[in-house]
Amino acid sequence: METELRERIINASLVLFERHGFHGVTVNQIVETAGISKGGFYHHFSSKDELLFVIHDIFITYVLERAASSNQQSLPPATRLRSIIKDFVSVFDIYKAHLTVFYQESIYLKPEHEEIVKRKRQQFKGIIQSVIREGVDTGEFRKDLSIEITTMAILGMVNWTYKWYQRSGEKSIEEIADYYIDLILHAVLSDSTK
């Protein structure tokens, strides 16, 4: 019941923030849309600012936990990178509304919340870098790869998905993930592992 109420608040705010922007929405509108009391809102969130942070944190935590889990497996770097990219791309479908609000409204995050989000994004980037570094060190990936540029290319390419991905589009999110994986692995694998 508690989790369900929290989800109702988040879902109502996602719809409202997407439509009217963070500053165009009041707590009263959120509780009215969610069909709850103001006390119910403040039981779960100390403020609208905290709610915005939680919206951001949900998908960042999801993708970070999945990447950390993939990276802990005793598998070759290419297999781990494939798994990380697949989970990363899936987030644009699972948390589509969260991401839209994130990109529209992240400038309104409080500095302390922004710092947490930034730290998690850095951790995620670090996991991708470590997998690429290991792939280069073991010879599975090309020796001439720039670990930093390759990491930023992957993050940039996949992050841009939020701009154009539509559930009703020609390709499913799984097909898009497979396409990215194919593209990235063809770029990073050494000739001996292709």
Rank of each mutant, 00 (worst) to 15 (best):
N159D: 09
E134V: 03
G156Q: 05
R142E: 03
I132E: 07
L51V: 01
Y62V: 12
L81Q: 05
F59D: 12
V136M: 04
A68N: 12
Y103N: 06
E170Y: 06
K143F: 12
I60M: 14
Y162Q: 10
I84R: 02
Y95Q: 06
I154F: 00
K48S: 09
K110S: 06
V63D: 00
Y62H: 15
I127K: 10
K120W: 08
G135H: 05
Q129M: 12
G139S: 09
W160R: 10
F102D: 11
G135A: 03
T150C: 07
H56D: 08
K118W: 07
D49N: 14
L52R: 00
A78Q: 14
T100D: 05
S74G: 12
K48G: 10
A78P: 10
F92P: 02
L64M: 04
M152W: 14
P77T: 06
K171P: 09
S130I: 03
T138F: 04
Q73Y: 11
Y108K: 01
H56G: 09
S90G: 09
Q129T: 15
Q104I: 11
Q129C: 13
E175V: 07
F141V: 02
I84H: 00
D137E: 15
T79E: 14
W160P: 00
L52Y: 00
T161F: 12
R121I: 01
P111V: 01
K86H: 15
I94Q: 07
Q73I: 13
H56C: 13
E134Q: 13
I127D: 09
S172E: 05
F141A: 06
I173Y: 06
